[in-house]
């Protein structure tokens, strides 16, 4: 694979006494969507949090665009162009939708054209622009969390389970927004439990188990091999 945007080599991460990541080797290609898959509790969220710097890797190395970021603090990683949508959405509930978006555009004022693009993806955000984010519904909060990472151009988007617990109509909105982001040339590392979404969006995939990457390849390859899915994740995509 040529010129990956992100490379993790032998990354180990501990949370208190727990040894969560046990030597993660992961390559995220430039452009397209890389799905990070696996059962619950295998280290997918910890991998994303280690990449953004919320957890520091105990050993191993992380390279972003060829730059070593292993020891870099979180804000410096974000300023290099890494955007992050956490599993809990990380909404500032006492701030308005507008204030959440203004804050997300860290490098300057929000561009109107970009905002219109975001509104076209998530119309409720225009409706609730002046409302406190804490008063939004679960689906609207998730829209805001994705919209926030879209507020300015990033080089890599780390998105953790954006469709978790959402109604099918909202899931389709989310998938549409991510597809649009992808067609604009974005590089996305996406943790997703919804296999229909993973199959529709993913270009490449990496499967984790016990804190390691146990398989990596194309999404099409994984989607087309029921036995492989059964072996890696204990399920078949035919069921989805």
């Amino acid at each position: 694979m040529s010129d990956p945007i992100l490379e993790l080599s032998g990354v180990h991460t501990d949370i208190a006494q727990y040894h969560i990541l046990q030597g993660v080797d992961l390559v995220v290609p430039r452009g397209g969507v890389t799905m990070l898959l696996g059962r619950n509790g295998v280290g997918k969220t910890t991998t994303l949090r280690t990449i953004i710097g919320h957890w520091q890797a105990k050993s191993g190395s992380l390279r972003f665009n060829g730059t070593h970021i292993t020891a870099m603090p979180t804000p410096a990683r974000a300023r290099l162009g890494i955007g992050f949508v956490p599993e809990d959405m990380g909404i500032f509930s006492d701030l308005t939708v507008e204030e959440n978006m203004v804050l997300a555009a860290a490098s300057g004022p929000l561009e109107q054209a970009r905002l219109e693009w975001i509104f076209s993806a998530f119309p409720p955000l225009r409706t609730f622009w002046k409302s406190e984010a804490g008063n939004l519904s679960g689906g609207q909060k998730q829209m805001l969390s994705i919209a926030r990472v879209m507020a300015e151009e990033r080089q890599l988007y780390l998105i953790d389970e954006p469709t978790k617990g959402l109604a099918p109509a909202i899931v389709s909105t989310m998938a549409g927004a991510l597809r649009d982001l992808k067609t604009r040339g974005a590089s996305i590392l996406l943790v997703e439990q919804n296999f229909a979404v993973a199959k529709a969006l993913g270009d490449t995939a990496a499967v984790m188990d016990d804190g390691r990457i146990v398989w990596a390849g194309t999404m099409a390859e994984l989607a087309g091999d029921a036995a492989l899915q059964e072996r890696l994740m204990g399920l078949s995509m035919e069921a989805h």
């Binding site: 409720p124 689906g139 909105t173 927004a177």
Partner: peptide, 8 residues
């Protein structure tokens, strides 16, 4: 882009 159907 897909917007949430009937979401008003």
């Amino acid at each position: 882009m897909t917007a949430a159907p009937g979401h008003a």
